[in-house]
């Protein structure tokens, strides 16, 4: 038998909606890419208010965890993990604000104010973590909660300021 005669039978591919779907997706991607470009150049105050919102969520989480720990509802391991996770989120927001490139004086002021408040939050987290780690001598759990509560107030003030702009 002539080996070259091996004929290939190409199975006809059903034209499924799936393949049509991918084409439509491509068509949808073009305007979407534009949307990304515009989204990246969002204003400073917008980015700051997002960061403030995220940090405020993290601080609120940490406060709930501390209170639950005080009430004996949460184990140390779970409280510590929750604080770590919340701190990580606050850090991410702080990095985002740090990396902003403000356009004018006003934006620079906003960024500076935000960084001050976010630093206060970071300090609050440090107190909270210390209160969890030390059973004697260090700050107590309620000290930690107080530090976070102050941070939260500062965040609220800031978000009102940024929001009104």
């Amino acid at each position: 038998m002539d080996p070259g005669a091996a004929r290939r039978l190409e199975a006809k591919v059903l034209n499924t909606p799936a393949s049509a779907a991918s084409r439509k997706l491509l068509a949808a991607l073009a305007p979407a890419a534009l949307a990304v470009l515009t989204a990246c150049s969002g204003s400073t105050s917008e980015s700051v208010s997002t960061a403030v919102q995220d940090t405020s969520s993290a601080v609120a989480t940490a406060r709930i965890a501390l209170r639950q720990d005080l009430d004996g509802k949460l184990t140390r391991a779970a409280t510590a993990t929750t604080l770590d996770d919340a701190l990580k989120e606050a850090q991410t927001s702080r990095d985002a604000v740090l990396k902003l490139s403000p356009a004018g004086q006003e934006d620079r002021d906003t960024q500076k104010q935000a960084l001050e408040v976010l630093d206060q939050c970071a300090a609050g987290f440090a107190t909270a973590r210390a209160s969890l780690a030390s059973d004697t001598g260090g700050p107590s759990l309620s000290d930690g909660d107080e530090a976070l509560a102050d941070a939260q107030d500062a965040l609220d003030d800031l978000s009102q300021k940024v929001g009104s702009k």
Binding site: S57, A60, K73, L74, A78, T82, E89
Partner: peptide, 18 residues
């Protein structure tokens, strides 16, 4: 009500402990 948007597993389980 506390304005927490979930971003980690620790937040998922907090309400159960509560």
């Amino acid at each position: 009500p506390s304005g927490i948007a979930v971003t980690s597993l620790s937040q998922v389980i907090l309400p159960v402990a509560e």
